[in-house]
Design a protein around this nucleic acid. Sequence first.
DNA 1: AAGGCGGGGAG
DNA 2: CTCCCAGCCTT
Length: 348
Amino acid sequence: MQFSNVLINWYLTSKRDLPWRKTNDPYRIWLSEIMLQQTRVEQGMPYYFRFIEAFPSVFHLAEASQQEVLKLWQGLGYYSRARNLHDTAKYIAEECDGIFPDNYKELKKLKGVGDYTASAVASICYNEPVAVVDGNVYRVLARYFGSDTPINSSAGVKEFKALATELLDKENPSAFNQALMEFGALQCKPKNPLCVSCPFNNSCLALEENRISELPVKLKKGKIRHRFFNYLVFYSEENTTLLHQRKGKGIWNGLYEFPLIETEKQLTALEFLSLEEIKEKTGENSSIQLYNEKPVVHKLSHQHIYARFWLVSLKKTPAKGIPMSKIAKYPVPVLIQNFLNEYEPADY
DNA sequence: AAGGCGGGGAG
DNA sequence: CTCCCAGCCTT
């Protein structure tokens, strides 16, 4: 039996019933693939349903505002995906009559579409024989072939793409690609893979050499950055507050948050209140109260954020004040949403 | 080639 | 706690 036959047979009896497997609509496949980048199926699924309901076609998505798209994406992370998704939808709708490119080469030119996503859409929607290599595929191939080439090195990227391409069932690339990924997700799992019931347990090199737990090899990433955020939660007698949109290349680009003062380290209340910046932002007739003595620790993959919220009461509504009741329209980081969930009900 | 970019779940 | 997830982009 060939590798692909065994794999696809396993897939036909073991695959999950996922919504994007019921269609070949490139819009839906593309949407699902963008959402599933570095994201577990279980986490992405509710977002997929909400997007399909809100934006049934690429035209609907194209006509939405970026704020609407980011709001619906809120909580899924890697927000550049949402911005690129929206940009690409507008491009497809306005420049291509709503028709997606039908091949790998053209798909890869789209914003937010890299080697993996172009291969996935091309193979699933158009049966183009291009191999996908995602985290699952790296793991399955590294173990099956007993390769310790780091999967996140340039040599590893080349090696595993070549292996996947060689193995690919050119007659049925759609089923093969999805099967290989599904196999990695369900059978050849990172921890405690199900080798006992594995259809490849007589040909897997890592299993034979007892190296399953060592593979795949992955180069370690850099260390984490520690940041201290002080949010100024303004509120006036008319129940308005201030939000600010993050810009630039850092985290949460495009999302909103309360006016922020970042400090090098955790400050005492006295030190904080003596900051010139505070006096400028709060003005004369205000009072400041620390909301949480213990900072909220918000962990990103590459940063730890220690956040404290300062409630600032104002006598009059500030210019550009936003009614508290409208905050829900703004896309905010999970850190801010968690605060709102806890703070809002208590106050009104 | 290396680093930035989110959030959540599993072990 | 660490690791990893249907990766991509910039420098």
